[in-house]
Amino acid sequence: MDFLRPASWEEALAAKAAHPAAVPIAGGTDVMVEINFDLRRPDHLLDLGRVAELREWEVGERTVRLGASVPYTQIMAELRHDLPGLALASHTVASPQIRNRGSVGGNLGTASPAGDAHPALLAAGCEVEVESRARGSRRVPIDAFFTGVKRNALAPDELIRAVHIDRADGPQQFSKVGTRNAMVIAVCAFSLALHPESRTVRTGIGSAAPTPIRARAAEEFLNAALEEGGFWDTGEAVPPSIGARFAGLASGACNPIDDVRGSAAYRRHAIGVLARRTLTWCWESYRESERRAPCA
């Protein structure tokens, strides 16, 4: 095994080009577990810890450019207004120690269906900036990023540089079910983002399908129902029947498995409950902001 320590982004790309099978390591929260338990013996470890720019972020007019290695702790502390869904998701990641090291870039690199960041990214909307030395930079929409169980759209010579996440224009929520009250891998997770500017909603579901997914039928239903009922304008409470239908469609979007963490049936059920609850929380918060807005 060789340990590659690029000091800059350019060096990192060069190293990845030279050794496409090299495994990037940042927080180590996935890679080191596999090495410690003899599940993985890559020829090269590519340490991204020295590439300072990966730990930087920038809040732009419409998006936040989040460096791939910005730890969850910082997202929770510094970005909860711009990226509330992701900040909530970050808070559910493992433990303080892991949140100090783990990052969205690492989550995307592993592309586990249980990655906590994914549902929030799907709901907020974002593009993943990836780059190779040979072909330069490109942006992959999050909807096209997850290609299979623990597979993503990265080419072997590409690295994740940053994520461009739409700044929240409305309430966002993230909920995760685990069988312990802290430090637990998601049995399933759900994220909802209201986008009042476009009068749309977006969702993200984790651990309930081979990849993180959006509940598209549920989104379409809710978009139509909110529009038809004039709810965006009136700010009235969304009737329970709409919540129930939304929950049912979210549930129906799942394609889960039975595993040691939970049954498929439970996952479907729980996603429905989370969909209903996060809709309630988001909508209440939207109504509150609407009520406040005229006075402002």
Binding site: L88, H91, T92, Q173, F174, S175, K176, V177, G178, R180, N181, A182, V184, L274, R277, W281
Partner: peptide
């Protein structure tokens, strides 16, 4: 559910 934000 604790920090996982499943219920208020």
């Amino acid at each position: 559910g604790g920090l996982s934000n499943t219920t208020h």
